[in-house]
């Protein structure tokens, strides 16, 4: 029964991911005085891409064809780990935060391999940039995760959320720093402004788009979908770790309705905050990424330090 609910919940997560991406795009268009596309536009794009016949270059090896599936499946597994609207699920209990970071790393590894596979200049460039960002973002993310793990004395997401719910509202400096660090990492990892621009194919600045430039048809659809899932994953992670209030702790209809309503409300707010920051800031030069991610690392590190110094006795 529990496994069934968690599978249904993960499926719902995956189905809602394009809607969240559409919401972010919708708000961003309004902020920039453009007429927004309908909220369901990402679904239409995905449906169109799934119908189209994919073209594959002659030089492609099996990695090129396998990578989209690996990327998508790791994103789905990651979505299964993160509690969405229900706190206690068997999928959330078998794996912890470090596995989550590992899933992200595995998907990214195959995507960069696919970028290198064809031997095109853009693919290689995008892959090298992606690895640079990843090597800087991963320590910052792990440090933020460890801050949480040290406070809650567990790396398991369900138990950590339980712990936050039990202790109630406590003003923790470490959590504020870890939240800020995780937000910056999320921006870098999901390829949003100021690190990468998801809306452009301008050659000199591309990171994610450069890697997937050769993909078409259902392969491209899978990668795009995985990317939307990843964006929502960061949103859910931030909302549920730091502000878990409202998440369903039992399977009664009332708790479930409250859980879904609260997570959708939190995501809607995050989906407004993200486009605002994207509208306010310009894209950075590639050589300034390390300053941006160094700052994220510093925030996470300060979170850890302030936990050790100020919060424990």
């Amino acid at each position: 029964m529990n496994w069934l609910t968690s599978i249904v919940e993960t499926a719902l997560f995956i189905l809602l991911a394009p809607l969240f991406a559409g919401w972010v795009k919708w708000v961003k268009c309004l902020l920039q005085n453009r007429r927004p596309p309908p909220l369901v536009q990402p679904y239409r794009d995905l449906a169109k891409l799934f119908r189209k016949r994919p073209m594959i270059a002659d030089t492609a090896s099996w990695i090129f064809e396998a990578a989209p599936f690996v990327v998508f499946v790791t994103a789905v597994f990651a979505a299964g780990i993160v509690p969405f609207a229900i706190a206690h699920l068997p999928t959330a209990k078998v794996a912890d935060l470090i596995v989550l970071v590992g899933f992200f790393a595995l998907g990214r590894f195959f995507l960069t391999l696919a970028g290198l596979d064809l031997g095109t200049a853009f693919g290689g460039m995008g892959s090298s940039r992606e690895m640079m960002i990843a090597s800087l973002a991963e320590p910052a993310m792990l440090m933020a995760v460890f801050t949480l793990a040290m406070s809650a004395a567990t790396t398991n997401l369900s138990q950590a959320i339980d712990w936050v719910l039990q202790t109630g509202l406590v003003l923790r400096p470490s959590f504020v720093f870890a939240l800020a660090g995780l937000m910056l990492v999320g921006i870098a990892e999901t390829g949003r402004i100021p690190v990468d621009n998801p809306a452009t194919h301008l050659e000199l600045t591309m990171v994610h788009e450069a890697m997937v430039l050769e993909y078409s048809g259902r392969y491209l659809a899978l990668i795009e979908w995985a990317n939307q899932i990843k964006l929502m994953l960061y949103g859910v992670l931030i909302a549920n770790i730091f502000l878990p209030w409202g998440i369903a702790e039992s399977l009664t209809p009332r708790d479930l309705a409250l859980g879904f309503a609260s997570i959708i409300g939190k995501l809607a707010v995050l989906g407004i905050a993200l486009p605002i920051s994207e509208t306010l800031f310009a894209k950075m030069r590639v050589f300034r990424y390390q300053e941006f991610l160094g700052f994220a690392y510093l925030l996470s590190l300060l979170g850890m330090l302030s936990h050790v110094i100020l919060e424990v006795n």
């Binding site: 003003l171 400096p173 504020v176 510093l298 300060l302 006795n313």
Partner: peptide, 26 residues
């Protein structure tokens, strides 16, 4: 005495302390 046993004002003092050291880093 951990953070959780303190009142919200005592927590706020520690929180501001963390922000002070953050400004030093900035």
């Amino acid at each position: 005495m951990g953070l959780m046993q303190q009142t919200i004002f005592e927590q706020a003092v520690l929180f501001l302390a963390a922000l002070v050291v953050f400004t030093s880093f900035l």
